[in-house]
Nucleic acid binder design. Structure first.
Lengths: 225, 225
DNA sequence: CACGCGTACTTTGTATACAATAAAAGTTCC
DNA sequence: GGAACTTTTATTGTATACAAAGTACGCGTG
């Protein structure tokens, strides 16, 4: 995507992430064109791209609407993340270079420092480091397609905001699991790395449910795995 | 997508599938517009959609090229299918309705008949039935997102043509595994269904490698799962 | 008063014209 | 003769104008 298109893409995407464009909202091309300062053509490009990434839903001849997430959708996303990132960890444990493990350790130390030093942890630094931590593992797995699939799951608004609502205990648990992941990589134990990653993500789902959902009606679809 | 867009989408997609647009070919918007009988605008829409599904690769300011698949890409696709369809089988075993299992049985009988009766099996019927068989399981899993992810893997040209090159023995093995899947569903044994589905797909990969690849250099990336 | 039809309006879909960009070829200077 | 620079050309990116479709509202009629 070129200048105007990606400008529109970023503008719309960030407004969805901040909630300015609420779930279910009808996005009108002309309004977006005004807001972004470009014509409708690149707006349409951007909307199609956002649709492919499930940020919005395009209904032919009606318009595009900001995606809404049901509890089941959210469960699906975490479950799929657990499966795919677990697989990525398995692959990465056999392929990770010393440099990768070094960087993971560095990020782990950074996150530990954030949690130990201050009274109120700097969530931005934690979130950024955490994101990069997972990115390194995914990339180390060495599968373009896997990277892309995971990317599409992680980019979702709700995931992006998850860590904001974590309690200190949640963050410490998460950080501990990162440490265990590094240990598994050092030992080159794929099964271990996979198991840790899976539980890491499923624990995150549990934390998310407790903090975010109003009524935890939960078992609308039968559990598994 | 509306009339002109989807017309263009289908026209381009089918030409990629038949090989008329070969992997690596540079697709020029104006030429496509002529071929499809529409203007460049819906062509661009179609190309963006095809790009999201990995049929083509869009390089900004350069053009769009038909995707090329390396051996590693193909390995990734089969591996991810094994993981995701395996998971779908697990979920489906807990949710499948009698009607689902009935339809699976019917398709299984159809495929058995194709293999038993004629000297040269009717591959078209087999391929179509097989496709539907997998579709039912995926849908029975009841996860929109999972369905979509699997759909994107299966739609790929190379997968679509896989069964064409199968030997009779390959087809019989495949058919036998379908029977075992049905048994697992009847028993509502998720772990069994998952294991059968995984081996079903990995066996298909093996068959594909033997029939298609010129040099089976194979172990360029370490195996897993 | 209610129901159905028609018209006007809003919004998306498509075509075309123009601008920007990158590659290729030709030319000039060393 | 070679290399760098300019000019040309092929192709994509963007804007705008117009067409089609779908919705809502209002009017008329039963």
């Amino acid at each position: 995507m070129s200048r105007a298109s990606s400008k529109a893409y970023e503008a719309i995407r960030s407004r969805i992430l901040t909630g300015e464009f609420a779930p279910g909202a009808h996005l009108k091309e002309e309004e977006l064109a005004e807001v972004c300062g470009v014509s409708r053509t690149p707006i349409r490009d951007a909307l199609r791209a956002l649709s492919a990434e499930e940020y919005v839903r395009v209904v032919p001849n009606h318009g595009t609407y900001v995606s809404e997430w049901s509890d089941d959708d959210i469960k699906d996303i975490f479950t799929l993340r657990a499966i795919l990132e677990g697989h990525a960890a398995l692959l990465a444990s056999g392929r990770a270079m010393p440099g990768h493990i070094e960087e993971l350790s560095h990020l782990h130390r950074t996150m530990s420092t954030v949690l130990e030093k201050e009274d109120e942890p700097d969530r931005d630094v934690f979130v950024q480091s955490n994101r990069r931590f997972h990115e390194i593992i995914t990339e180390a797995a060495g599968s373009r397609r896997l990277t892309q699939m995971i990317g599409r799951l992680v980019e979702q608004p709700l995931i992006a905001r998850t860590a904001i609502s974590y309690t200190r205990v949640d963050l410490q648990r998460s950080n501990h699991q990162h440490g265990e992941l590094i240990a598994a990589f050092r030992a080159r134990d794929g099964a271990w790395a996979q198991a840790v990653m899976k539980s890491h993500i499923l624990a995150a789902y549990q934390a998310y449910k407790l903090r975010y959902k109003r009524s935890c009606n939960g078992n609308s679809s039968k559990a598994a795995e």
